[in-house]
Nucleic acid binder design. Sequence first.
DNA 1: TTGAAAGCGCTAACAT
DNA 2: ATGTTAGCGCTTTCAA
Lengths: 338, 338
Amino acid sequence: MKQYKAENEKNLTISDIARELGVSKTTVSRAISGKGRIGEATRKRVREYIEVHNYRPNVIAKSLAQSKTFNIGVVLPSDTKQTEIPFFQSCLMGICDVAAGFEYDVVVITATENDIKLIERLIRNHKVDGIVLTRPTVNDMAIAYLKQTGIPFVIIGSVEDESIIQIDNHHIGGCCELTSVLLKLGYENIAFLSGSKYHIVNNNRYKGFKQAFDEQEKDIDERLVFLDFISYVQIDRAVELIMQQKPECIVCSDDVICSRLLIKLNELGYSVPKDIKVASFYDSIHLANYNPPITSLKIDIRALGIQAGKVLISLINGGEVSHQTLLDYEIVLKKSTM
Amino acid sequence: MKQYKAENEKNLTISDIARELGVSKTTVSRAISGKGRIGEATRKRVREYIEVHNYRPNVIAKSLAQSKTFNIGVVLPSDTKQTEIPFFQSCLMGICDVAAGFEYDVVVITATENDIKLIERLIRNHKVDGIVLTRPTVNDMAIAYLKQTGIPFVIIGSVEDESIIQIDNHHIGGCCELTSVLLKLGYENIAFLSGSKYHIVNNNRYKGFKQAFDEQEKDIDERLVFLDFISYVQIDRAVELIMQQKPECIVCSDDVICSRLLIKLNELGYSVPKDIKVASFYDSIHLANYNPPITSLKIDIRALGIQAGKVLISLINGGEVSHQTLLDYEIVLKKSTM
DNA sequence: TTGAAAGCGCTAACAT
DNA sequence: ATGTTAGCGCTTTCAA
């Protein structure tokens, strides 16, 4: 139980300072926090002492006294497959950035669709003041749980429930717009290849896809729509089926699917964009360096994290926040659809 | 300052339980922690009450009393480029796993080679009991700082200083072995393409490469060695230079470089493995699905995180730990070198 | 085996 | 403007 601090000089406390300066603890506390009235002279004395002696308040003690932890929790999916996609990491970095700016720290925990034990523990242990949830699913257990606890939380993604604070890109709009562009380029037979239906974002992307067809009063060829294709084996099979229909273009719901698609197309001997056009509803490093460059929706993931962090911290501190923030996207046309 | 808890029933404390059960706080505390002598009967009564009333100790209060936080800090690089590689995310997941198992939580912060402000803050705020550092660099500021504070810490990677607890894969051995295999396959002119010299791991990989040549008493063609190639532009240029020498094989120090190499080779019209063999000293999802499959060193990143977490927690609790743990690797020969 | 009391370092009413 | 005092919820001597 011997801590390393023993090696250093013992940590300075507020009482030490009070004693040395011949004032009360309260005065010192006030000089530090800036709350409450205090004389300019004393404040200066205290501040100087602190500076010189390199005093740092003990955040734990402050936490206990104020029932605040100055931590925010970030819930990441723990399944290995998701683990390797850069989305969550970029989000996390964004959140860390803002958190640091507000003197908060970030506690990371993992959860799966049907195991939110760690979230429960984190909250019951009072380790965080609020939580950022990433990737909401259909019938999300974590959301239900958090709502019931009353702890401040925001989600990165979208759900129907308007009582939940959500930060997301405008997936429906973006996917609709990209699809529209493709249609206007004259590609009529567009295939759609999407990941798990369980992830709301995929459903929204499909909504956008459909909307574009509706707007232009064109019909989707249902034989070209492949939803809920998760494993590589499934995707490979889907690609074969799609290519049998000889479409002009394939749109993928995300970068991982798209990169697999590209490999499979290559294997089958098809060349992009000569034989088939390809576009993706989300780009990332997986696609960034591909040759030919892939037309895709470009979204700023880090910005998403930053926004989520900001909103959460504001929420924690009693600020008013809007229930939904939709961030922008950019459509980047590249060689793969030319 | 009104907290959400107000909405729920007020949180049960140890005093509440003591009062209800007609015992002292001390007794309740003992019943929970298991420390100190206590009658079997009372212990049971307390445990039952806790179970029924769903009591959860306040970790913050415990922290204050024991000067322990039950948090470990993980330092991740914040530069965007590194952010997108899955290595750190996998490490982090591994660390989260063990931490949860020991009832610890993980606080994530970022740092760059020359900005360790957040590390300093984290420690001075007493937010963690120990730290995991990832990716040591040459003249690592973070290591120097941590060493001086005396806080328990481990690094994922290798450094010369034996006083530092290190967890790593056996890069030198692995790279040596893979190179040996390539040499034995009859590839004499092997090019080596590596990333930043600033990252110790790259230097170690090169050491392994050289060692293989030494062991077989063969000479490295210096014109084929390209160290410290970081940006894509640099890599592209290196590939051109390499190909002018018409080597039989190219070895990359990591997956990101390799994936860029493959794109560039493709662009230049070379086919793998027909025109040129390719191997990588580290595979990841970036390479996993490439066609043709790429010969590479396979290492289990999550395991690295798990081990680091275990060692750190042991260290925090005063356990004896060895200064270096080298994890295994696997050489996977694939089509790219056939 | 159990309890009383002090204390971890800070904040916040309430006085003065 | 400053000080007094009483907590925050838990652990931990020390005494019974």
